[in-house]
Each structure stands twice: as C-alpha cells, then as structure tokens.
C-alpha cells in the first residue's frame, strides 16, 4: 500500500465532543473519517458498506464485542489491534492506547507504522480530552466541597449554639481525628444532623459523639 494514500477510518465513540476532536485530527493528517453513531447491529452493516481500513473505537463501547465477533466469523473483517502486540514497538503503542481507552481494529496488510501514527493521534486526543475533563471535575468538586462545608458549618452552629469559627474548628478537628477529608466529614455531619433534626430535634445526640 502506498504510504501517501489516505486511509478510510471508521470512528465509533458515543462521546460526540471527543469524537469531534479525533475526527478533526485524523482528517488533518489526510485520512477519510466516517463517524458512526452506535446503534443496534448497524455496525455490522456499516463495516460491510464502508469497508474501512481501520476502526477506531472507544474501549468501553459494547460495540467492541460485535467487532470481535465479526473478526472471528469473517476473514475480511478488521482484526483487533491487540492481536498485533508481538513487536516491542507495537506493544508500547497498544499499551498506551489501552490506558487512554482507545481500541482499534485493522485490516490485514496495513503498514504497522501508519497504524501506529493513527493510533498515536487518537490516543493524544483521548488523553487531552480526559485531562480537560479531570480538570473540570476537580474544579466542580472544589466548588461542591466548599458548599458542603459551609452547610455543615451552619448546622453545627445551630446545633452547638456556637459561632462560625468554633464550628469550623470542631469540624476540622473531627475530620483529622478520623483521618478524613474535610468535605467527607462535612457530608457525614450533614447526614447525621439533618436526619436527627428530622427524626427528633430534642433527642438528637451532641455532636461530639457523632461519627
């Protein structure tokens, strides 16, 4: 196969945003990318119709077992890339792909270095998408944590009839005693105090015994 020739790649990823990034990156490298929405048995038809040189698919997709099955039933179906892990260089590429959550199926006869470069691009997109998502989750988590701590503080203030500073130091001390994150302890305090308030405000136990 001429190495300049563009490859036809079928892309299956039910995360549309990430799929967009992967698609763009591969098209920039001159490949033809067909995006496939995962649906019932449409995959078998799509592979037969579009005859891709390669399939890039989200590792977690249930469509993977369909692809595996196709490759055992039909010798012209793309084979799982993990079956090519006998070369040390390939093994590294595939390991990176498995870690990033990318899996791929390739037609026999494709040049290994071309396959590698496509996988590398997809892995890079998956990784940067994950990094972005982690960052977002972290920011969201931090905001969420702050809210929870504020709420726990309020409940303690009411329950112990103390000021904000005393409530906060009580919360922090309890968290340290239990070697827990502050937000985790705050959630437990909310569970406990909210519940006891609802059950029976008069019989609720003093906070010091909580946990």
């Amino acid at each position: 196969m001429e190495s300049r020739e563009s490859l036809r790649i079928l892309l299956i990823d039910n995360n549309p945003e990430r799929a967009g990034h992967v698609c763009q990156a591969l098209r920039k490298e001159g490949h033809e990318v067909i995006r496939q929405r995962p649906d019932a048995s449409g995959l078998t038809a799509a592979v037969a119709r579009d005859q891709p040189d390669m399939v890039i698919i989200d590792m977690e997709s249930p469509d993977r077992d369909t692809l595996e099955n196709m490759s055992t039933l039909n010798e012209h179906a793309p084979r799982p890339i993990v079956f090519c892990a006998d070369q040390p260089g390939d093994r590294q590429t595939i390991q990176a792909a498995v870690r990033a959550g990318v899996s791929a199926y390739v037609m026999d006869g494709l040049q290994p270095e071309r396959v590698r470069s496509i996988i590398d691009s997809a892995v890079a997109q998956f990784e940067s998408f994950q990094a972005l998502r982690d960052e977002l989750a972290q920011t969201r988590g931090a905001l969420e944590d702050r809210k929870v701590i504020e709420r726990a503080k309020g409940l303690i203030m009411r329950h112990e009839s103390c000021d904000e500073e005393a409530a906060y130091s009580l919360l922090r001390r309890t968290a340290m005693d239990h070697s827990e994150r502050l937000a985790v302890m705050a959630r437990r305090v909310i569970d406990l105090l909210d519940k006891s308030a609802a059950d029976n405000a008069r019989n609720s136990k003093p906070f010091q015994q909580a946990g």
Binding site: E60, S61, R64, L67, P80, V82, I94, V98, S103
Partner: peptide, 16 residues
C-alpha cells in the same frame, strides 16, 4: 465495570 468482554480481556492483558 466493563462495557464489553473485549475491554476486560485487553485491560487484563495490559495490566490495568
């Protein structure tokens, strides 16, 4: 939680 048996196989094979 794995979405496919293939994913389980690959993660075990590659040490995840």
């Amino acid at each position: 939680r794995e979405g496919s048996w293939a994913s389980m196989r690959d993660k075990i094979a590659f040490g995840l």
